[in-house]
Design a protein around this nucleic acid. Sequence first.
RNA 1: GCCGGAGUGGCGGAAUUGGCAGACGCGGCGGAUUCAAAAUCCGCUUCUGGAAACAGAGUGGGGGUUCGAGUCCCCCCUCCGGCACCA
Length: 976
Amino acid sequence: MTQTEQSQHRYTASLAGSIETARQQAWSDAEIFRQPNPGEDGWDADAPRFYCLDMFPYPSGAGLHVGHPEGYTATDIICRFKKMKGFNVLHPMGWDAFGLPAEQYAIQTGVHPEITTKKAIDNFRRQLQRFGFCYDWSREFGTIDPDYYKWTQWIFLKIYNAWYDTEADRAKPIEELIEKLESGRLPASFNPDAAEYGSAGRSGAELFKWHELDDETRRAIIDSYRLAYIAEQTVNWCPKLGTALANEEVIDGKSERGGFPVFRKPLRQWQFRITAYADRLLRDLDNLDWPSSTRTMQAEWIGKSEGAHIDFELADAPVAHMGLPLRVFTTRPDTLFGATFMVVAPEHPLVGAVLDERSGSGDHDAIRAYIEQARNRTDVERQENKDKTGVPLGIDAINPANGKRIPVWTADYVLMGYGTGAIMAVPAQDERDWEFAETFGLDIVRTVQPPEGFEGKAYTGDGPAINSDFLNGMPKDRAKSEIIDWLEAQGKGQRKVNYKLRDWLFSRQRYWGEPFPIVYDDRGFHHAVGEETLPVTLPPMDDYQPVESEDPQPLLGKATDWVNTTAGAAGVADLPADAHVRRETNTMPGWAGSCWYYLRYCDPKNSERFIGRDADRAWMLKPKAGVSREEVERYGTFPPDLAQPGGVDLYVGGAEHAVLHLLYARFWHKVLFDLGEVMTPEPFQKLFHQGLILSHAYQRADKSLVPIDQVENRGTDDAPEYIETETGDRVGQIVAKMSKSLKNVVNPDDVIADFGADTFRLYEMYMGPLEQSKPWDTRAIGGMFRFLRDVWRLCIDEGTGTPRVADAPDDAIEKALHRTIAKVGADIEKLAFNTAIAAMIEFKNAATPRGGLDGSAGTLTRDQMDRFMRILSPFAPHLADEIADRLGLLGSIGVVSLAQAGWPAYDEAMLTDDEVEIPVQILGKVRGKVVVPADADQKQMEDAALNDDKIKAQLEGKTIRKVIVVPGRLVNIVAN
RNA sequence: GCCGGAGUGGCGGAAUUGGCAGACGCGGCGGAUUCAAAAUCCGCUUCUGGAAACAGAGUGGGGGUUCGAGUCCCCCCUCCGGCACCA
């Protein structure tokens, strides 16, 4: 036989390629991954359900990178495994397709974003399908599909038409609020928790009689309760992007996307009252099976702190502020006696009032100059220079505890966006206040006794109160509650919980996003577009250039025909049909579409609802053991302490979404839950973050990076010496993110062409634990390719292409197979794919005769090969199906793929050996080994150890003090 | 600065949760095959000493608990991620 004949059916990249495309064709022809819904043919009502979700990608023009398939392969493996275990598996894929890059491209080229986006989607789909992932493509959609964003707009209207009832601690329809206001059961006043009214608090709000109010005031009151509202807010304006960004999208004073400078500008914007949900978003984290790091990040982002509001009377107050105390939030009311001055943020209304009226004894020019400078100071500058600056306002406040007059300053270290924008400064117990007091020579009075030998400046720890009248001697916690009780009795303060979380800025001045279902009448009032006229579709445009002006203009303003319409056309019922209205020209941010896509996958074609009730019940609801299904399914009876809040069973995606997407989606979901639109209080039961796929890069002594094609290794592999070719300088090898500039980007298409998709999948899963970031090593892929080639050769004769099957099973191989089945199954459940693959390699090695295979004799029986292929199939589905097919297995059980076959069983008894080799230690060091029956008792093991010749020799002349025997494990002899 | 996570051979990583450290893969070395190379196959591969048997050291560093520590406790160092004047 010639060489070519021998290797005719060898597993090569090209054979892998043809096997893979043929298998994929067979799967798709037979639609084996289509998962029916309740009520459809093929729905198994009795089978357990598994909803496994990948974070859907933004389809960029560059195509898939090697990071995408990592999480996708992991979920593919677990979904195939669950299918084999008999689950109904929901495993969808779609596209997060609105967003800046396509629009940036449109600005440069004039090509409509829809065209570039759809092209990118086609490319992404092609690439994903080449991996053989078992997605149910019949459920695919993109956030840009009008059928989808119709419901995004519908959900916006749900939120817009809802308010948060703090007594019931849940959102309710706005009609209930109006009814309460009309009947007088709720005082006719602005929402005391409304951020846009400075969270004035109920005591500061004026009370009105509802029926005496004019239409405008009534609207304003109702709007102050809506969960979606418009307010002027200082926003992060990015001129380069032509849009405002949420705080989370600004990093070090630059835009998260693109890294362009960001400035602070006031703008009227849509916002979501997510702060109303702060406490529930925090509390419910406890019930989620999420990485603790992510739960911590969300908790810190929400930033709950407990303390008090304290009101300080002002001496010589400006008229505009007359009678109004200066309210502060503090977590240390116990230190009130040590408050020696006050600081308000430069944006605080008191500053404006002082300037307007020229009240107080301050230097008004200096104050004006200071607030001007503070406004223009970017976040970067604030971070670079934390030296304390400020100016006195020239007015005094009265410390309510001791009646002392203390000066009021303004300084930019106090932020308008947190608390009340004003603080009582207690330098002795606060480092920032100490620094400020030191800079400006203000009084410092200790009110907590620092421990002996304390040499620091501010003391923030616990200790007995001093210089604090009736609090003296009390520890911190006691003093806190005493002073709050006292303040409440005096009417000068009350207990208060504060959150760092701010309301969510939801408008963008972009084209490529969902339009708001909102119009404005000629008086400027906003109206909801009628549900029956949804979706409000994006108008075509021929110019995407952002409008440059001092006042940021939304791009959609250019589409005048679209903007100007009538109430009738927009479906606004409370205006005459022919009344002129203007459409909202802002669009929604990229987060909108990803806030609820997991719901739509459950029921993607539903034209009646965003998700059908049955689909919601089938895929999202996970009753906890001990709670009856009926009880859980009845809306409103969800036990608040439910251990399993339900939702997606496994959500896999990058940790970079820890606070943004994952918090926003939870918020939308909770509103929908409160309004009875979905059945679960949380969207994602279990969350998992895959690590980043990194690459190698080289670093010069000055820490700058060198592209990999400019470096060569002039040393050996053991002792590498990396030299930058151009300069001859030594550089160090480091691990870095893949980037075009470093030329270390790996393209999945190339890897698949060189090795096949099965090898690619296996390699990425074998690199290390899924959650860990790890560097791509092109050389190491060959190892996984060789594994698959060896498996192929073990099962298929390379000369004939037919299976080589042993007649009778080998006992040792059979035993190894049982162990491998057990190990692989357990590891998949743990998402420990690297060790599962290692176990299969070990099995392959065990089943391969020493010295290699010769002739056509096989070592595995048909039945053993069957089971081996089944456990391999979630990892390398094409190769496993091909071998199973050549064996005639698929036909014999009447399936197209092993994904439709059952997961093999194993025999518990086969997992243990009759005899085991036990290490014998003397003083904890291994000195010998003995073979004992696996079920040997302590005495037997001890005897075997002490009778071992080697051990006897070692024990010569020593006294045995103690013998520790761990049955089945080891013997340790304590002797000296 | 604060909050997380992690440090194991030349490299990626295993280790049933307190019981033989280094599974498995990559790389390397030696051999077979070959005119030669690639590919393939066989063997070795934590370090030090030794021809070997074997001995000693060894999981970032230091201390501790224990018959026994990569694993638990205390202190320190380094790297990665997040937050950062939040009162």
